[in-house]
Structure formats: structure tokens, C-alpha cells
Write a protein that binds this DNA or RNA. Structure first.
Lengths: 333, 333
DNA sequence: GCACACTGGGAAACCGCTTTCCGGGAGGTC
DNA sequence: GACCTCCCGGAAAGCGGTTTCCCAGTGTGC
């Protein structure tokens, strides 16, 4: 393992000079010595020891990213956005996946704190459990106290910079758009009640229907993933329009209907939420609420990197996108 | 920022004792002192500084993973497998995405080397450019020399532990299976000629057809992604069966045919390669060659972690999976 | 009763790098 | 020519841990 000292000796200069040449410093070094150091470093195959640099500088160049599941296109897009932004800043990204276990999330904050990462990005829904959230907040507080930075994509519950998708408003807008097509009997594939992203979207949808004077939808709880949507789709009763609180669930529901010979949108209309990238190849194309996922990931990184006085919360609007999977039932009359 | 020294002082013990209590050591510490140290650490909110630990121990607990694109389900699955395995070993994962730029790949090896990561996993196709491969090998050699470990998923070209999917054999088996269904006029959506995964699969397919005495397929080059498949699908001429060298290209091709009113499999049969997870919701379901992606990612990590004398190369067989997207043309007669 | 492990605590060297501080020489000014 | 800046090189003090080495105290075996 070749060290800076080896390089300095080989070049016949001091440690300080070698350091200044190889790892950007404000100080100038004469051309002659500079060349000698560079040549020595190259000959020896020197690579700076970042652990040592981090320790000496008191600042690292890696950021931590905590997601639920990388194979979910939602998080893949978020992560991709954040990682591109990080690469642009010359930062490395350490990724942790929790598989929806809140304890894992807390543990990752602690671990990333120990790593002294420059910032931690928490992507993904909060859960409606004050005890767990409290412990997470405490872990975050420790990290912030020691100079860390945290940003989050999701509900504004942690008191840190947040990119907050307008889940309620988006779902409400979707409900109005669907009602406008003449639907009156709705079902919601609502995901787990404790998951706030799921329950917010469900609530926004239900409230909007209520304001329109439409009957309450049938609410079916289940898992927040493709299989959850698939399973829940069998319990939508006589609804003419089904809202799955995220796209992967909607895709699962489409599969279930297809298998049962239920035609979409002729027999039932289906809508999702997020507009994940894989939707473009879905048949029928899926109505959804578009969220600019990559931008959100990138924005979260930016927020985490620019220290403000108070925590800033940025609302991100969702845009209703009507596609083939919903039918205008007024035409039918 | 609270340090071990703060904890030791608060507990009224030496640095050494505090270290032994808090960060696993072979040495015993008396119950009394142990309790005092633990309480002090908790009160102060102490988190070990991993950079300092890494420096002192000369070994880190993070591994590096280099992939082309996280939003591609192929790499997401590979990464997920590797990350689960890493979590099981108590390791953190630092992820870099190259977006298919080989220079980025080399740069990441250098960066991860500097980070002194325990091992580097290189996932993704090699390119048929000896100059670039040579530079990558050189960068890897430097890292290996300084005690690093490297494993790779893809072609066995780097002289390191490798999980090598049987691209040629898998494509050949697929070709034979398709020929058995009576197809004789084939086209291959072949991806970029320099990309070895693409060219190996294409070559395996073409050779197998040749051995069967069938006419040469039309080979259409293009990008190795969904849009590449989409674009290439317009140039398949009068082929009755189209092989896309990976699934995302096949999905793109299906979209193109759908838009043009070409029915799959009635008008043209389509097959892909990889069996990515998102295929389960594809209509029509896609014939492909299944690769156990998650296992491959996990296996690569294992290989990297267990030092052998010589580099071990593990072939991974692909399994032909016939689904709706291909038609048995013998029936038609 | 004595030599002898053995146990557990602490002092201090060390991991590889950054950066402050010091000092010598070159160049400029009056 | 004396004095003052600059400029740049080097010595050395950290950064926050781990671990070796030393040492005192406490059983053990014979």
C-alpha cells in the first residue's frame, strides 16, 4: 500500500509539498517540484487514502441515500436523480435499502452518521407511528447536532428539508378528473393504513369524492407493491373505476383483471399514481398522477447540500395524466 | 462532535478501555467500567467515526458497486441481490452509475480504490476495445496490488473473479427452441456491436441458426436499451421471429409493433434475454432466456469476499422460457 | 510460601493525510 | 543598501480511533 510519504520520499520533497501537489490546496507549488511529485505518484501508483483525508479534513465527499427498494421503479428513479446530481458535485453515494422496515431506516441513519457522510437523503414514506418516528427524529437530531445534513422525500414530519409530493391534492385532482368522466362507483386499492403516502392519497381521493357528493368508495387495504395491487383487485366489487394508490399496485391490478377476463377500461377503469417510467410500455396505458421523480431526487440532494436557516419544505405538484386505462362512461349513454 | 475521548473522560476511564467497550475487541473489560462507558456513550450521543476506524484498522466495511444504469431492471436486480448479500455481512454499499461510459467505469475503480473499499463489484458488459479494457485492467491491478478485491458480472476479460452468464449458449438454445417452432426467417435486434454482451448473444444466436442449416438472420444494430429496441423493430423486414438481445429492447420492440398494428405473436414472434422482473406484467408475455439476476449479484459479492488463489469464473446458465410472444408456426399449416 | 500464569487497565505509538506555523531567499521600493 | 513583502518549502501538530506493550493485582499449583 503506497502512501503519500512514499511518494514524497521518492520525489525528494516533504510530505506537505506532496500533499499540496496531489490533493488540491490553495497553496502554490513550484513547477519543478510539482512535476517531480506527479511523476513519483504515477510511478508508484499512488491513490490517496480517503479515510485519512476525511479524518484530517473533517469532511467527507460521500452522501448517504436510504430507499425502501431499489427494484421498485419509483425508488430507482428517485435514486437515479439523486445520484446524477451527486456525481455533478463530485460526490459519491452510499445506498441503503430498508425493504420498508422503519427500524432499518433508523439504523441506516446511525450508520451513515458514523460514516460521517456529508448528507443523508431519506426517500420514501413515513409511517403513522409516533413512537418510531420519534426515534428516527432523535437519531436524525444527533446527526444534525454533529454537523450533518438531512433531506427527505415524502411527508414533512422530520423537521428537515423536505421534497413533499402533493399526495392529497394529486389524488383529489385525479378523483375530480375521473368523476368528470361520469364514474360514480369507485374503489381504492389503498395500501397499508399506516403508510402515510398511501393513506394521504387515499384520503385525498375520498375527500374529493365526498365534496362532489359522490358515494364513498370501497377502500381495500393491502401491500404497497405489485402483489398487493394484484390481490386487492379481486375485492373491488361493482366499482366502475379503481384507484390504486401507486403505479406498481395498479400494474398488479391490471394483471389480475387480465387473468380474470375483466377488460380494462371497458369493464373497469384503472388509475395509478407516480407515473413510473415502466408505464410507457403498459397495455392499456395507465392513467396516473405524474410526479417528476428524477427531479425530486436531484432536488432533495440540492436541499441537503445548501444549508438554510430553517428547514425548507418544497411542495411538488402532481399532474393528472389521462390515458387508455380509464373510460368515459358518459359516451356510453 | 463527540469523540471517544469525550466518552472516556466522562466515564473516567482511559481511551483504550472506552475503545474496547464500544467497538468490539478481543479484550475483556470489567462489568463496572463497561457499564460506565456505555452510559457515558449513550448520554453523550457518541457515534464512532468510521473514517478514523478505517484508518486505524486498515480495513473498511464498505464495498463498491459499479453499474451502468440503476433504472434498468437488469441492474436494479443485480444491485439488489448484491446489496442484500452485503447487508447480511454487515457491509455498506457505495454505488456508482456509469451510464455506459467506460471511462466512468475506470474512474470509479480509482475512486473506490481511494476509498479503500473492501471490494469492488463491476456489473455490466465489457466493451470490445482492447485499449479501454487494458486501462481498466491496469486500474484494477493497482487496486488489487494494494490489497483490494474485485469481482465482475459479465465477460471474463478482467482476470478477476467473475460471474459469467452463458450469453452465447443461452442465445443458441433460444435459437434452437424457436427453430423448433418452425421459424426460418429471423431478425436480431443486436444492440451496439462493441458491447460484448450484445455481440455474444447475437453471435450465439446466429451460429446456432447456421448449424441448423437455416438462413442467416437479418442483424439490426442499435442502442442496448428500450428505445434502441423500439427503433430497430422497424427494420426487421419479413422476419417471422425477432430476437432482441435483451429484454428491455424486446419491450421497446413490442411497443413499436403495437403502434404499427403488427400483432405479436400472430404477425411476428418476439423473444428477449434476461427475464427481468417487470416482464411478468408484459402483454403478451415475453419469451426470454432467464438469468437468476439477484443470485448473480449476491454471488459476485461472495466471490469478491472469499479470497482464492486464482480468479474463479462461474458460468451461469440461462434457461429458455417460452411464453406468449412466440408462435408455433407449424400449427398454422 | 513462592514462582507463575492470567486478568484487566492505561500510556503511547501509530494509521495516512491536512494544515498551521516558521523560516529562508528572491524581488521590489525609497 | 537596508528594509519589507511575497512566495514557497518543510517540520510538526493534529484528526479520532486501534492496538501493542507494560504493569499491578489476583488467583493458582506444588
Amino acid at each position: 500500500m503506497v502512501t503519500l510519504e512514499d511518494v514524497a520520499r521518492q520525489a525528494g520533497v516533504s510530505l506537505a509539498t506532496a500533499s499540496r501537489v496531489l490533493n488540491g490546496s490553495t497553496r502554490q507549488v513550484g513547477a519543478e517540484l510539482r512535476a517531480r511529485v506527479e511523476r513519483a505518484a504515477d510511478e508508484l501508483g499512488y491513490r490517496a487514502n480517503i479515510a485519512a483525508q476525511t479524518l484530517a479534513r473533517g469532511a467527507s465527499n460521500v452522501i448517504g441515500l436510504v430507499v425502501h427498494d431499489l427494484t421498485d421503479p419509483y425508488f430507482a428513479a428517485l435514486a437515479d436523480g439523486a445520484m446524477r446530481a451527486a456525481a455533478g458535485e463530485g460526490l459519491l453515494v452510499m445506498v441503503g435499502t430498508t425493504h420498508r422496515d422503519p427500524e432499518q431506516e433508523i439504523a441506516y441513519v446511525a450508520t451513515l452518521h458514523a460514516q460521517r457522510v456529508r448528507a443523508v437523503l431519506l426517500a420514501g414514506s413515513r409511517v403513522a407511528d409516533p413512537e418510531v418516528t420519534g426515534r428516527l427524529r432523535q437519531e436524525i437530531a444527533r446527526y444534525l447536532d454533529s454537523g450533518g445534513r438531512v433531506a427527505c422525500v415524502g411527508q414533512d414530519l422530520l423537521g428537515v428539508d423536505t421534497v413533499a409530493p402533493a399526495n392529497r391534492a394529486g389524488a383529489a385532482a385525479l378523483a375530480r378528473a375521473l368523476a368528470e368522466l361520469g364514474h360514480t362507483r369507485f374503489a381504492v386499492l389503498a395500501g397499508p393504513p399506516q403508510l402515510m403516502t398511501a393513506s394521504d392519497r387515499c384520503a385525498g381521493f375520498v375527500e374529493a369524492l365526498d365534496e362532489l357528493g359522490l358515494p364513498k368508495p370501497r377502500v381495500v387495504h393491502g401491500a404497497f407493491d405489485r402483489d398487493g395491487g394484484y390481490a386487492a383487485a379481486s375485492q373491488t366489487g361493482d366499482a366502475t373505476c379503481v384507484f390504486a394508490v401507486n403505479d406498481v399496485m395498479a400494474v398488479g391490478a391490471l394483471a389480475a383483471y387480465r387473468e380474470r377476463g375483466v377488460r380494462v377500461p371497458q369493464d373497469v377503469s384503472v388509475a395509478g399514481f407516480d407515473d413510473i417510467a415502466t408505464l410507457r410500455d403498459q397495455v392499456p396505458s395507465l392513467t396516473t398522477v405524474r410526479l417528476p421523480l428524477k427531479d425530486m431526487g436531484a432536488r432533495a440532494l440540492e436541499l441537503a447540500l445548501t444549508a438554510e436557516e430553517a428547514a425548507v419544505v418544497e411542495q411538488v405538484a402532481g399532474e393528472v395524466v389521462l390515458r387508455e386505462s380509464v373510460r368515459d362512461v358518459r359516451e356510453a349513454r
